[in-house]
Design a protein around this nucleic acid. Sequence first.
DNA 1: TTTAGCACTCATTAAGAGAGAGTGCTAACA
DNA 2: TGTTAGCACTCTCTCTTAATGAGTGCTAAA
Lengths: 340, 340
Amino acid sequence: MLDERKRLVLRAIVDSYIETAEPVGSRTIARRHDLGVSPATIRNEMADLEEIGYLEQPHVSAGRIPSDKGYRFYVDALMEPRPIPDEDVEKVERQLLDPQLTPERALQAAAKLLSLLTESVSLVVAPSTDQLVFKHVQLVCLEPSSILVTLVLHPMIVKTRLIRTQKEYSPEAVGEISDALNRKLKGITYRQLGATVLNEIISEFGEIGRALVELVLQSLVEEKEEQIYATGASSILSQPEFRDVQRAAALFEALEKKDVLLSVLGSAAKSSGVKVIIGQENTYAPMQACSIVTCTYYVGGDVVGALGVLGPTRMDYAKMVAAVDLVAQTVSMLLSRQHR
Amino acid sequence: MLDERKRLVLRAIVDSYIETAEPVGSRTIARRHDLGVSPATIRNEMADLEEIGYLEQPHVSAGRIPSDKGYRFYVDALMEPRPIPDEDVEKVERQLLDPQLTPERALQAAAKLLSLLTESVSLVVAPSTDQLVFKHVQLVCLEPSSILVTLVLHPMIVKTRLIRTQKEYSPEAVGEISDALNRKLKGITYRQLGATVLNEIISEFGEIGRALVELVLQSLVEEKEEQIYATGASSILSQPEFRDVQRAAALFEALEKKDVLLSVLGSAAKSSGVKVIIGQENTYAPMQACSIVTCTYYVGGDVVGALGVLGPTRMDYAKMVAAVDLVAQTVSMLLSRQHR
DNA sequence: TTTAGCACTCATTAAGAGAGAGTGCTAACA
DNA sequence: TGTTAGCACTCTCTCTTAATGAGTGCTAAA
């Protein structure tokens, strides 16, 4: 599809542009990479590459910069895998493979590490409760009208909530309801907790318990909301593409919209392995100057969430892919071990 | 201390600068505020105000801008209180006074509202567990080596943690230890959980329980860490003082350091009522171009946390103070109601 | 097919000229 | 004595102009 020399030229341009953020000219390439040809020849190749849409020219007397399509080809076919340095791998493992870490903290630590490793914004979606299975439900009566609901979900998630009730309940009554709910819910997945199941459960309880059960189930549904963290926003400001504050502001605004982030990372959650979304491939306009590298993480074989990084399209893809992969694998390992 | 006209002039300058972000000249004031004197007279007053250190001149042919000291005087003596518009008050109350809200969500909502109201960064410290009192401790054995620890603290805080143990425990043993711990800890404050009390408790348990109790207590101590949210960072980028990306980057970096934020808000937690920290009054250098307005919130009379906003020194102090006060009072009301 | 040479384009930078805003000072005025 | 008008002065900001230099595309020769 692309002859060998064109590939070399394209790679050289992308590599150079990633490093310097400056449009790269034929002369630079001839000097820096020893292709054994003159700048004029390279110019011809560059003209061809621009023709196919892999390169762009900001203006006529500037060098070339890669287009989104060019980056795509680079990522798919040209990029040299570059493993994370041993010391960084060690650091990640040291900080992440602590079995006493709670999942939330582990994910926060993962976000921090990822942001540190890549010097860009890291995104982490906490396990989507949707697919999780109820393992243990418990109501405890703290005071007559104050009930503590604790919920344990299959891979490693615990949720708690304090509920105030209208009526007063005796500890015994609450205990009974607790046991009954436990029997009902055990093994069911969160997703299955639709209106029908809900009503079915509610209808099985007598007059006394019904109000309480309703309250509990309602609060469970509310807890369903997905969590997402974005860390390291400051690091991205040092990138030259955000010298213009307007752009930065637009991006930051987007970063505060959880639903946007979720839909972006959500799309990644389907495929397995590291996924790269480049510039305009992202349907959300304010992020079209950015690329996103994501990977799912899992607990014992089941995908439970995704994490990734976001940076300008001119990002060091090789490094990003390696870092995201490393952290995703390490998190998966930690969670799976804890879960077993 | 300052004669009436000087006060009027100073106020006019601060008001105008807050609005336009442009150095304000004598002519502008004469035109916009009807002081009944000529620009020349105002110039004389301005020269005096600069002498005392209330005003500064960016360069000789520019107007004056308020110094930190000038802002301080403005906040303490000049500013006209400006209540939040009714519709906004209503909005805050509607969103915040929902008794079903968990404290965490309430605080997150508060941060969002505050950021929306003030168009700047809002900060919220979650209740510092330090002063909280143990109300209920419970261990539940999910599997022989997997124990769920639930913790209820006096005003409204619930914490949960899943612990994996080395040894295996029977449900009965765990239940016993749970009850014993509950007796021991009930009524104690988190702060009192020092090494001595810890050891005292540990030593009371037999060989069997000791390892488990140790694990539980250790995890409790870890949970002590304070939480802090910073929301709305994007809004601050539209302020003209952050046209320079460098400054913005420095500030954002500071915003990601929890300890810095905590120490800033922590200092506010002592005094009651709304507190304003202006520019250089803040000891942390990267924030000296910013002012911070904070207020504590409380549960039934006890201060449990603080919230506030952060923006350029050229912020609309009257609006900020009103907004912070409103949100703090509303949060306090919600939490206190829930707690009663 | 490759390369050297060359004319051409266009961003970027520096210098210079006005324009405009605002001041401080002086002197007149109430 | 406090206030005001007038004026010279300073300094930023903007616009223009010119020079520089990087990089290209084209042509013709190797």
